[in-house]
Design a protein around this nucleic acid. Structure first.
Lengths: 201, 201
DNA sequence: TCTGTTGCGGCACGGCACGTGCCGTTCCAT
DNA sequence: ATGGAACGGCACGTGCCGTGCCGCAACAGA
């Protein structure tokens, strides 16, 4: 789904094509922030970019594909995972960083719209998974696996589920309850997960 | 956002109006299942229902509002909460019921589209929260509170977060990873939550 | 019984964005 | 010099939007 355009040109032409591609994506993010994803249109992006509609359709097959590429490209490089040896600290650090980036303006509303669009358009869903969700989930599981090998996590604990348990409540707060994702909330979730629900003597 | 139509008529007229309202909602669900929410249009619903577009716009302000009303009305009565005295058993029962109803066809795709639309349209988000999310969350928290008072849950445990921890991973699997919501997955999540992540001696 | 009101189906309208043609231009490779 | 490729600009047909207007039928009040 990402823009795989501009093959087989001279260096100058390739440079110009890349420039246009980036300009279109920048305009897309701008416009989306101004009017919202629902009112975003390819015509509008073309007009503000000073570009023909063909130039957009040649690069992306749909509004959703363009938007996904624009949002994800603008928010790279990805959220890196630290490995200090302390899983809890690393998870906490990474989750706070993710919340900072995706859970609040300016990217928060765009990310929300992106996930929303993925519920309507399977190709957007696939691209979002491939380019962001999966890599992020894989990194988390990999980090958890190292911790498990070091004895910080029970050897038979279900790591895929662990990842879902860490991410799920935050997505729930963000997408379902639609309430702000604060660092305080992250801490409440982490505390609850670490302390456990069942009473201890 | 629900349809608050047909005030101030005779009984006969009110009956006819209610019939039409329900027929339109039935058609909406049908069409959405056939062509998907993205390709659903008010014109299409009006045509198949044998109804003028005005008759729809008089009842609902937008496609999203109509769809929300149609989906939620078709899936009532709500998911009741049992109270057998055993929290874990009650939670397990309720979660499995919710997954059966909303996590798979025929309602699964519609509920997914509904949550997706809520990411684009604040009025849909508000109505979804008011009519479904909040009541459901409140019932869960209330059930947890009773269990807490009976000593089945630590007295200082964060019940709002507990609710998010129970629901979040399932929404994550459903909306983000877009993988099937099986009973087996529910059990994996419950087991992980109950056993805990940190190693026990 | 007569009259005003109300919801209705049917039709038409202007508006917008879609996705796709065609044209002429520019730039590059051959 | 010749051909090709990407481009901006323009126009087109299509689909759906939301909103008018019309005539009809069912009711309500006098």
């Amino acid at each position: 789904m990402p823009c795989r355009y501009s093959g087989g040109m001279s260096d100058d032409r390739r440079t110009r094509a890349t420039d246009r591609t980036q300009a279109i994506m920048r305009t897309t993010v701008e416009l989306a922030q101004e009017v919202g994803y629902a009112k975003l249109s390819i015509e509008g992006v073309a007009a503000r970019s000073g570009v023909g509609k063909h130039t957009i359709y040649r690069r992306w097959p749909s509004k959703g594909a363009l938007f996904l590429d624009a949002v994800l490209t603008s928010s790279e490089p990805a959220l890196d995972y630290p490995d200090t040896g302390d899983v809890i600290a690393d998870l906490r650090h990474q989750i706070h960083a993710a919340v900072d980036l995706l859970g609040r303006p300016p990217l928060g509303p765009l990310y929300r719209a992106l996930v929303g669009e993925a519920q309507h358009d399977p190709s957007v869903a696939a691209a979002l998974n491939e380019r962001f969700i999966r890599p992020q989930a894989d990194r988390t599981v990999a980090r958890l696996r190292r911790a498990q090998q070091q004895g910080q996590i029970s050897p038979d604990f279900d790591l895929d589920v662990a990842m879902a348990i860490l991410s799920g409540p935050l997505y729930f707060q963000f997408l379902i309850l639609q309430e702000p994702l604060t660092h305080e909330y992250v801490e409440r979730v982490l505390k609850a997960l670490l302390v456990g629900m069942t009473p201890r003597p």
